[in-house]
Design a protein around this nucleic acid. Structure first.
Lengths: 187, 187, 187, 187
DNA sequence: CATGAATGAGCCTTCATTCAT
DNA sequence: AATGAATGAAGGCTCATTCAT
């Protein structure tokens, strides 16, 4: 059945995510992934032409592209967009596996063209598009503000401080970004 | 002479930085580093007990710890600290080698205890200390603001947008952070 | 139908011949043969117990045994036999697939007992039998002459010189062998 | 010392010849060669970039190119050349290792460009050159005769008949070729 | 200090073969 | 008969590390 095939593929990907997040893409041998998925090593190569292909599949999934896309296309505007993105991030990267993978994936950019493209789109087009939608205009200040927003989120995700919970962090971050953007006199 | 010894060690480290930045820590074979430094492979292991040791040395250098330290100990206060840090970042990571290394080093955190500690200190203590010095008080909002600041810098460094130069970005970022922090009513 | 069964078996063998001639017996994966025959990999193993069995089947077919047999049993005598064999060779090995296979099969002799036997019979008994029938007596000189004949054919087949066509080559070869055998004084 | 390096390289080549002659180029794993040479597997790859490189080195050595070259350049003429080549062949391929390797190398022609070239030169230029030198003129008949000579040698080498020793075979073969060539009336 | 030959563990990948469907 | 998913055993090759010189 087609279902079976997709199911097995998915099973391998999920196992790979766990293993890659623990050892990094290049220190994780394929046989560990096979074991984690409880399949033979050969089967991994039945579903993925090469380790590289598996890495790229996992890496793409670890990026927040679809979060941003869905928030941008949701019809929301203003700081609601930031809320949407913020919540999406928090949810996705609450999982330590995803958090660790994100770090490893960011480093891949130097090595894999496919990942570099994905990150380009994420960090330039999407980000500028978001800036426009959030602030209702395209401006340097907006772009900077959005970078501060994204960066702030990233910072929180990568090193979650024990004394600030998700909601509080997000509320403050959005407030800082929105207020900071408005108050142009301060610049 | 002792000088010679230090000189050679330094030469190997610099070669390693170039090679690691290009291939990543784990895909860069030691013999490439030796070639880049124009020394024999054996010599690399005379100066560094293992590849791991060399990786850690290079990784530590790629972090912005000493920038932050020097700014915190400079006696500056308020947004002058942000300026100091911002300029330091821009300067250090203008070099694509450093930029690429930073990405790879961040991913190391999962694997090397030494790097994890360094990043812990950087992302928690130093950051909170900075927040206090910048805003003159210890508050959640301050910590969030500083994360937005750092994150914004990181964002800019990793993907330098063509249409925003360093100075403009920094001025806007600092202004947004400072203004956003002040204007608590917006939250 | 039985016909179908034989037909499919034949189809796989023909595909195997093409693939083996291109890649050699050991560098040709079974899945390529299956693809060439437009059947599934599993089916190849339904018709042949193992790859080895398929190799031997193909290898045997690439030898000129049945050519020699039919000429020896044809009732011909003297140089007519050489003509018969010569024409048979030319016809069979005009096909580059057969020519390439012959080379690969000859190398198999070291590895597969079955092929070694076949080649033994070919290169000793059959050859000596031919010598006797051609020259009307069993003599060392006759055996040598027939080896020169066979070897000459082989030489022509493996590297067909552009400036000598099949007929001319064969006429000259037979003439040389027959005349050389007769003229014992020259020895 | 340079001597040591060449010595070790040679040692590996000789081991490879023995192993390849027994298992064929593609069924002989590198680790067997290493064992045969009493070195580590890694060392084989220190001296030869790849297995392919080692194969080609061994294959080239198994061809009779230098025998033919030295006979053609020896200043000999007429059937003396055939004697020279014949003796060279007998000597070289008396060794079963060389004999087996020759078979395997001939099959390589289909796969490796380098070997194809070598065999081209051997079977076309060299052979035609020899024909001219032996018979004092360039003619189709001469070329055919020389192919019969070479082929006869090959035949003998590959399957040495027990009842014909080297000397007798060679004497008869040369006599047949020379007499057969002369006696044009027979054609 | 410096070199580079030598080692051996381990990795990615291929592929013959089996088997449930 | 026929398919193709699944297995596992090798195989080629890389590379960190050691060591004699």
């Amino acid at each position: 059945m087609i279902k079976d095939k997709e199911f097995m593929r998915e099973r391998i990907i999920l196992a790979a995510m766990r293993v890659f997040s623990k050892y990094g893409f290049f220190k994780a041998p394929v046989h560990l992934i096979a074991e984690e998925a409880s399949v033979s090593k050969g089967l991994v190569f039945w579903y993925f032409r090469s380790k590289r292909e598996l890495i790229i599949e996992v890496a793409k999934r670890s990026l927040p592209l679809e979060i941003i896309d869905s928030c941008l296309e949701s019809g929301l505007s203003g700081e609601k967009i930031l809320e949407c993105i913020g919540k999406g991030y928090m949810e996705k990267y609450r999982d330590p596996v995803q958090r660790s993978l994100l770090l490893h994936t960011m480093a891949l950019e130097t090595l894999y063209e496919e990942i570099a493209k994905e990150m380009n789109s994420l960090c330039e087009e999407k980000l500028d598009e978001a800036a426009e939608k959030v602030f209702g205009e395209s401006s340097v200040r907006g772009k900077v503000a959005l970078r501060a927003f994204f960066g702030g989120l990233m910072c929180y995700i990568l090193r979650r401080p024990k004394d600030i919970n998700e909601k509080v962090f997000l509320k403050n971050l959005i407030s800082i970004i929105m207020a900071g953007y408005e108050n142009k006199t301060a610049s």
